[in-house]
Amino acid sequence: MDFTLTEEQEMLRQAARSLFTRECPSSLVRAHMDDPAAADPLWKHLREWTALAAGDTVDLCLFLEEAGAAVAPGPFFATTALFGPVLAAAGHTALESVQAGELTGTVAMAGADGAWTANGDPVKTFVPELDRVDQVAFVGEGPTVAVVPAQGLAWRPVATLDSTRRLFEVEGPADRSAAVPVAAQALADAVGRATVAVAAELVGAGRWLLDATVAYAKERTQFGRPIGSFQGLQFEITDMALAWERAAAAVAYAAMALDAADPDRRTAVHVAKAQAGEAARRCARVGMQVHGGIGYTWEHDLHLRLRRAYAGDGLLGPVTWHLDRLAELLFDSDRET
């Protein structure tokens, strides 16, 4: 097992980091709250990276960790982490246009209970960015996949804590003829990839929170010393760092397991998402506490990550859901989930 990045991977990370630093300042994130078109200039840059939709999961995760740190809005995540992989699983030719940055899309899969398992529910929930993408891949019972234009669908936005990722409810297309069967394992791997991708974003948001908190604890002084010198805070921040490190490693492991089609990959995906959700939430709460009054203001950027941490935990299964799946694997080894 080798967690060191190759030279190419290191370059990818650096490129992503400077792209998001340059093109996704918090002013853009805040403008996007009121007007989703504010993310369009960012998309002009990100569309050059949509080839990541089909490459290694490890690469996609490296890139999305940076997107998560910047809480990047727009269709990139839905297109590369959801739509592309589902097209790939279904052997759909539109994947090429996605990789070329010419086609955006999203996936409608979760039904009434919000879980990302194939179902025949007429209304799909938690569909990201639906009103601003070209196509939607509906995943139905069977499983099947139907790729249809987003335009003309009956949808409704559903606001959450996190305005940086816009979610929708949508009714399945009236015309069911577009639905084609997809191999269950291929679909499970696509959903696994998307799940680890959300986890990578959570690791990114957590990293921003951790870095900001450590930096603030060094620079803020009270009682004539840096607050980071108070042991009570040191312990909190250390535990936060441990949670983050563990999650980041678990996400990298799961990405590698998916790329290697390792038999252990299903477990690794559940571990990664559960750990990443837990870590991001913890980083948010401790980060808020260490920042004190300034962290509690709207004007400070901390809450943008706090919101992403909680909403990202919810997307593609919160901690509790993944732990329940793990418990089934641990206790009911005869059971297929």
Partner: peptide
């Protein structure tokens, strides 16, 4: 309270 609602916990609509 958020956790009890699973993925719906963060919904503010």
């Amino acid at each position: 309270g958020l956790d009890l609602q699973g993925p719906f916990g963060v919904v503010t609509d």
